[in-house]
Amino acid sequence: MNVILKNLLRFCILILFQVLVLNRITLLWWTEPTGFPPFMPHIYQLAILLMPFETPVWLLLLSGFAVGISIDAFMDTAGINAFATVLLAYWRTNILTTLLPRSLNEYSGLEPTIKNMGAFPFLSYSLILIIFHHLAYYLLLAWSFSEFGRLLLQVGAATVTSMIFVVIYVLLFTKQEVARL
């Protein structure tokens, strides 16, 4: 399948899944007047995380902005998701260069997946970027450093749940090699 078409399709599916399913899942761990902060799992960052290796940075930034702004339009948080996603898109190339043994030009036509990168590099790549994204997102939402501990708790819990969804997505949508005897 054409690379552009594939990424556009993934973009649409991820946004619809985020908006129609995940945004409805409110994770409340216990309900007391001063309990655990509620948070929401995010999966739409995968649209940026899974773009091909050699995508130029300007294209990453623009598509990050497009993804963020479409989520914003659904969630009434004008600009906040877009800010966090552009941040993620900007750091993506640097993190990939650090984690991969060879330069990025040598991986032409490939996408960052467990198959192409190995399980540990891929997971640390997505974990670092998702932490960046969530920190920016929840900091902008709260817009204050009072109750910083609570903010970190929220970021930690949201990161763990988002990573679970990322792993599920990768396990579901990676083509398996047929085992030969």
Binding site: G68, G79, L87
Partner: peptide, 10 residues
């Protein structure tokens, strides 16, 4: 882009 997002959020 970040400045634009911030202005919009504000």
């Amino acid at each position: 882009l970040e400045a634009f997002c911030m202005v919009m959020a504000m």
